[in-house]
Design a protein around this nucleic acid. Structure first.
Lengths: 186, 186
DNA sequence: ACCTGAACACCGTTCAAGT
DNA sequence: ACCTGAACACCGTTCAAGT
């Protein structure tokens, strides 16, 4: 029974990401993660407090990926077009990685217990706020409380993403879903 | 060991609703429901296919209650005010019964396996569509695809509800949350 | 410091009974 | 028809070890 490699933590995270994509929050099992990483079922406790702690790490990684997607989608455009494209990118991310998206928003990690995860979520929202502020500065959105306008935009795309993943919309192709999203952001 | 009363099914449903309110989808356990109903841990299988089936029944009941709340909130007002009030009622319901709301939208019951639940959700959406249609007929909303307009309104309030329950907004009182919601629906 | 194996108290689900 | 009790294969988490 030899010891494991030096960086079990990263191995566990990778296995957790794979398992998340495959089965979602409900099938996410500490013992299965350990199995995939090739270690005993309680080796993870050396690196994560408990199941929720590992899940929070997965969520944090998701927020960073989402943030990257939004920023990439918004390059080279007018302020309002940037805002819209980032919103479409948000929904696209949710449709492509529904299970990861569910871990990010449906797991009850609270901000005080999982500060890293909360910080990653904050960075996402910060990106949105910056886009809204640019629109207001350019006169493409009415002036006013920037945060509230950003929360409103976030709510709209988040609702579309969630309802779509819950199967509440009648459209079944991702392309059709994104067309609806684009129209809703007009 | 005497037999149980005649309508164990309703007793189980009541216990399931209580347990849902207390602990949410994650703490929802078939064995705990049976315990609260005072029967053995597999008596529920006489009345529900499995855990997800009982959960779907809980969700269906939630959709009917939500529908009632939306309709009651929308009495005696102009078409546009009815639509807005029903949207605020939607968010208010989610804030008051966060766990029940989570069971309704985060459990992966699919429409084909749980037709009763899907029908209850459809009735909710139908209420929204009727309000939107009335607005269009009265010239208080621009004409166009009624369903798409309703899906857009649904997405907005659903996103507000979900993000609020996920703790992503900075406001902590329900009153403040509903003020934001009312402003977002302007 | 880092990992293992046994152990405990839970699950969902199935099956052979009992009335 | 409706319910019980034992059984099976899983969990998360803890604890006493091993290297």
């Amino acid at each position: 029974m030899p010891y494991h490699h030096g960086n079990l933590k990263q191995t566990l995270l990778d296995a957790a990401l794979e398992l998340t994509a495959a089965t979602g929050p409900r099938g996410f099992t500490l013992r299965e993660v350990a199995r995939r990483a090739g270690v005993s079922h309680n080796a993870p406790y050396r690196h994560f407090r408990d199941r929720d702690d590992l899940l929070a790490a997965v969520a944090a990684q998701g927020f960073d990926q989402l943030n990257g997607s939004m920023q990439r989608a918004a390059r080279k455009a007018t302020p309002l077009a940037r805002l819209r494209r980032s919103g479409i990118a948000y929904v696209d991310f949710a449709l492509r990685w529904p299970q990861h998206f569910a871990v990010m928003f449906d797991s009850p990690w609270n901000k005080s217990d999982y500060p890293e995860c909360a910080a990653a979520a904050e960075r996402c929202f910060g990106t949105l706020v910056a886009f809204v502020a640019a629109c207001q500065a350019a006169g493409e959105l009415p002036p006013g409380n920037t945060d509230e306008a950003a929360y409103r935009a976030w709510s709209l795309v988040h609702g579309i993403a969630k309802l779509a993943n819950a199967g509440q919309f009648p459209w079944h192709s991702r392309a059709r879903m994104l067309r609806f999203c684009a129209a809703a952001l007009e």
